[in-house]
């Protein structure tokens, strides 16, 4: 009779439950109708089961997004958890879709589910990858744009984990600034 060790059948629980969302741009539908919840998971094994099963971000058509948010937070500014928050934004140029995009996104997912932000986990809402013809964007969303020290520490950790060169700055914008700034981009509240 074969003896199975507990490691072989007990999944590794995550600190938080996370929900993966998919957005597909269909101009004939309302924005919210284009946003679909794929699934929620709370173990390491279920994360990989999902990740290995879905299309890589670099293979998505232009106009699509993936988002990973804590369960109960919708990936939109209007959500109660996001409305006072903002995002660290990493802009990718066209060449980086082939070379960096999938690595950046996976690394960000591992930061979220592995709680890389440690005691600042309560500041974290989720992350989004936007696939766009004019340049893809990675955003790490936090819940309160006024929390300067925490926000800067989160940005530094993200930059370190993505191995973004020190000389390349990334910026953080409050959603309230982005929402009211039609056309051009909002000013950065913080940079690292």
């Amino acid at each position: 009779q074969q003896i199975i060790s507990p490691d072989q059948y007990i999944k590794h629980p995550l600190q938080n439950k996370w929900a993966m969302w998919f957005f597909k741009n269909d101009k004939n539908k309302e924005w919210t109708a284009n946003l679909k919840l794929i699934t929620a998971f709370d173990t390491v094994e279920d994360f990989w089961g999902l990740y290995n099963h879905i299309q890589k971000a670099s293979k998505l058509p232009s106009g699509c997004d993936y988002s990973l948010f804590k369960d109960g937070i919708q990936p939109m500014w209007e959500d109660e958890h996001n409305k006072n928050g903002g995002r660290w934004l990493v802009n990718l140029n066209k060449n980086q879709r082939q070379t960096e995009l999938d690595n950046f996104w996976l690394e960000t997912l591992l930061c979220l589910i592995g709680e890389a932000f440690e005691d600042l986990t309560d500041d974290i809402c989720g992350a989004t990858i936007n696939i766009r013809g004019k340049g893809d964007k990675l955003g790490l969303w936090t819940k309160d744009a006024r929390r300067g020290d925490a926000t800067v520490k989160i940005g530094q950790k993200l930059k370190e984990r993505l191995k973004i060169p020190v000389k390349i700055a990334i910026g953080f914008q409050a959603h309230s600034d982005t929402a009211t700034k039609a056309g051009s981009t909002a000013r950065d509240r913080y940079r690292v």
Binding site: Y9, K11, H12, P13, L14, Q15, V44, E45, D46, F47, W48, G49, Y51, N52, E107, L110, I113, G114, E115, A116, E118, R161
Partner: peptide, 20 residues
Amino acid sequence: GKKHYDREFLLQFQFDSAAI
């Protein structure tokens, strides 16, 4: 307890999940 997992720990399960 807090469940903080580093990237190497998480990555080792990437290709185990199909069996579970």
